[in-house]
């Protein structure tokens, strides 16, 4: 299993970024090669997207997965999964059924060599609050996660604020259980300070200061290095990247920054997300001294 042991923030790519191209003009191996080109060593996949015959890949597929990781010097970092307890339209899955679904993903993540999971929780309202039994679901899966050393993390994404009650509840849960197998993935959209003139901004949104991440760092095992706009001088124009990364480095944070591009323009004909990813990785290399 390929492992990259550099201390501090490390560069990786979330393959979700390629969503408009994957399966049409890019294969899984194309994505790996692109990550390798950027000198990045971490990868995030979406289980339900990138694993052939999910949730039951063949041994041949798994063997090829490990071969790709070795060949392109890429470490499996984060396995994106969903607790799909709304999967049936007419009733919610029971807590036990949800635990079973989550444990199936934990075992598969471990089989592929991942150490983290972006565990998306089903929501119950317009504020995107998670299902009421999320604690029971996570607790039920913790013994399996601990056995395999997999860290489950809900993603904290705009318009959610790092100082919100939702984040506090997740951190309190990690403290109360004392587990190292539950934390949060902070998406850098929470630091966004600039919007274009006619862009709709959620009225609930309030940008976080880079320092707001400091008390959360012990619970963050990887981040979504969200970016919106890279200029030709290799600067992100909407999120204060130098300041955010400096705070993280100064506080000794170790983990992966997984580039994630979700701009709708990536679905336009001819768009190739690697152009943006490469610009962003030049920026991160410069800031990290990588």
């Amino acid at each position: 299993m390929y492992r990259y042991d550099k201390k501090g923030p490390k560069r990786g790519v979330a393959l979700y970024s390629y969503s408009a191209e994957f399966g049409l003009t890019k294969t899984l191996e194309d994505c790996f090669e692109d990550v390798h080109d950027m000198g990045a060593h971490g990868i995030e996949i979406l289980a339900n997207t990138h694993i052939e015959n999910y949730p039951y890949p063949t041994d041949e597929w798994v063997e090829n997965w490990h071969h790709l990781c070795e060949k392109y010097e890429v470490e499996p970092v984060e396995y994106g999964n969903w607790i799909d307890s709304h999967v049936l339209g007419y009733r919610d899955l029971t807590t036990e059924e949800s635990i079973e679904m989550l444990c199936r993903d934990i075992r598969l993540a471990a089989r592929l060599g991942f150490t983290c999971m972006r565990t998306k929780m089903p929501v119950i309202n317009e504020k995107l609050e998670p299902v009421l039994n999320w604690r029971e679901i996570i607790k039920g899966a913790l013994p399996v996660a601990e056995k395999f050393g997999i860290k489950m993390m809900p993603e904290i994404h705009t318009p959610t604020n790092l100082k919100s009650d939702m984040v506090k509840q997740f951190v309190d849960f990690a403290k109360e259980t004392g587990t190292e197998c539950f934390g949060i993935n902070v998406d850098f959209s929470v630091f966004r300070t600039k919007f274009s003139e006619h862009e709709w901004v959620d009225p609930l949104y309030k940008a976080n200061d880079p320092e707001d991440i400091i008390p959360l760092l012990p619970y963050i095992y990887c981040c979504h290095a969200k970016f919106i706009n890279m200029n030709d001088d290799f600067e992100e124009t909407t999120i204060p990247y130098p300041e955010v990364l400096k705070v993280m480095m100064d506080h000794g944070w170790n983990g992966y920054l997984l580039s994630e591009y979700e701009g709708a323009d990536k679905y336009q004909d001819g768009y190739e997300v690697t152009q943006m990813l490469r610009k962003q990785h030049i920026m991160m290399k410069r800031i990290l001294g990588d």
Partner: peptide, 10 residues
């Protein structure tokens, strides 16, 4: 369906 989308869209 998509379990992470707000109920009004589901």
């Amino acid at each position: 369906t998509s379990s992470y989308m707000p109920p009004i869209m589901q």
